[in-house]
Computed example of a mutant assay.
Amino acid sequence: MRSGDLLRLTRAASPQYVRPIVVRVIRVLDWPTYHGWLWIDAYELDSKGDAVARRSLYVLVEGVQRMTAPTSAATTRRSLRGGSVGVG
């Protein structure tokens, strides 16, 4: 995980994400944590792909869903509304 990554966070990433959210990573923090978990600074994105909040998030790396970066703003809006998005 690195700066610029687009992630979808669900309950697999942490029980706090009852409602999945999409974020863009600002940076991975070097705060002490348990094996397999990370603290990240990220922007939470709305359905249009616009940043609505800056958050520090604690996530289980194995549960994070990586999304492919859209090629345009229109693609960003479509993909965040549930269109075709690569997850890896």
Results as ranks from 00 to 15, higher is better:
Ala69Tyr: 06
Arg24Gln: 15
Val28Met: 07
Glu62Ser: 13
Val18Lys: 14
Arg78Tyr: 08
Thr75Ser: 11
Pro32Leu: 02
Gly82Gln: 05
Ala69Lys: 11
Val25Lys: 05
Val25Met: 08
Ile26Arg: 11
Leu60Ser: 00
Gln16Cys: 11
Ser84Pro: 08
Pro32Phe: 05
Arg55Ile: 07
Pro15Asn: 12
Ser56Thr: 12
Ala42Lys: 04
Leu38Trp: 06
Ala13Met: 03
Ala51Asp: 11
Leu45Asp: 04
Ser72Met: 08
Pro32Lys: 03
Ser56Trp: 00
Ala53Gln: 12
Trp39Asp: 05
Gly36Leu: 03
Arg55Asn: 14
Ala69Arg: 13
Glu62Ala: 15
Ser14Ile: 01
Tyr43Phe: 14
Ala69Met: 14
Arg55Gln: 14
Gln65Glu: 15
Arg2Gln: 15
Arg2Leu: 13
Ser3Thr: 15
Ile40Cys: 00
Leu29Asn: 11
Leu38Cys: 02
Gly83Arg: 10
Val87Lys: 10
Arg77His: 10
Tyr58Phe: 15
Met67Lys: 05
Leu60His: 09
Ala69Val: 11
Arg24Glu: 14
Leu60Asn: 08
Tyr17Ile: 01
Thr68Ala: 13
Leu9Tyr: 02
Leu9Ala: 01
Gly86Cys: 01
Ala13Lys: 04
Ala51Asn: 09
Ala12Trp: 03
Leu6Asn: 02
Arg19Met: 13
Val22Cys: 10
Arg78Met: 01
Val85Asp: 00
Trp37Gly: 00
Arg24Pro: 01
Ala51Leu: 06
Asp30Gln: 14
Gln65Val: 10
Gly63Ile: 04
Ser47Tyr: 09
Val52Arg: 14
Trp37Tyr: 14
Trp37Thr: 02
Thr10Trp: 07
Arg66Pro: 05
Tyr34Leu: 15
Ala42Cys: 11
Gly4Glu: 07
Val85Gly: 03
Gly88Lys: 12
Arg54Ile: 05
Gly36Arg: 00
Gly86Arg: 11
Arg54Asp: 09
Tyr17His: 10
Val59Thr: 04
Asp41Lys: 07
Val25Leu: 08
Leu80Arg: 00
Ser84Glu: 13
Leu38Lys: 09
Trp37Ser: 02
Ser14Glu: 05
Ser56Pro: 04
Ser56Cys: 09
Ser79Gly: 07
Val85Glu: 00
Gly82His: 06
